[in-house]
Design a protein around this nucleic acid. Structure first.
Lengths: 133, 133
DNA sequence: CAGTATCCCGCTGGATACTG
DNA sequence: CAGTATCCAGCGGGATACTG
């Protein structure tokens, strides 16, 4: 019946915990779905055109891409620019405000890499149940 | 260009960009959905019981909570512990591995807070169309 | 308390085709 | 090229009720 083995972390009050939960939910409200963050990542190098983004995010359909871009624009994270070429050229780029997301993006990319490595390791060291004759 | 800036984000090559996109997608694969991250946040203070988590994450139904907990456990992010009390007591706590998520969680919480503040500011300075009698 | 069992709705997002 | 228009499948996830 040993308990209270709380991990080392800024222990906080129940209200603070709830505030944190809400903060994360607020963030997720804007960054929700399958595509928002990958889309932002694909723009880290600079402005990209619609078709370029579509190619970067393999398999995203134009409808969905269009919707995601619109939502991100509404939330002030990306900017749309139209050029009067023929045919028309449109570029999307990250807004200055999106810089505030860098810590999120960076930590997420890093964790994604590490996690993938971890999975690979597991697969390697695991005596997976396999067919034997 | 200076590559000594610690927070420099942009991937230089197209392949690096694609790798980054994939890393984020890998991360999101594990942290997907509406509840995973808030759930983890709710455990930052230490072990919690099923019902406690349910209360912390207002409005999550037992079915969904159960599913989310199982998935997080499978991915090694939380640990389940059963105590032979009557009635049975079950606690969930973050695993050591989940520590690797701290940068993600922290940056996300921070950004969520800032973003909410920003929204409030916008609302204030915006001459919103409103009903008048 | 700690869940499971059903039922089911809505929304995300995919497929395909079409337009300026 | 840069999208929009339709149609539709899947499933995330909510409501409610029930079990050990």
């Amino acid at each position: 019946m040993d308990n209270t083995t709380s991990t080392a972390l800024p222990a906080r009050s129940a209200e603070a915990c709830h505030a944190n939960v809400n903060a994360v939910r607020d963030a997720l409200y804007v960054l929700n779905g399958k595509w928002k963050l990958p889309l932002i990542v694909s723009l880290l190098n600079g402005p990209r055109r619609f078709k370029e983004i579509q190619r970067a995010l393999v398999d995203i359909t134009p409808k969905v891409l269009s919707k995601e871009l619109r939502e991100l624009e509404i939330n002030g994270l990306i900017e749309r620019q139209v050029f009067n070429t023929v045919p028309v050229t449109v570029t999307y780029q990250l807004s200055p405000y999106s810089d505030s997301l860098h810590p999120v993006i960076e930590s997420l990319m890093l964790w994604g890499q590490k996690h993938r490595e971890r999975i690979v390791q597991e697969r390697r060291s695991e005596p997976v149940a396999m067919e034997i004759d």
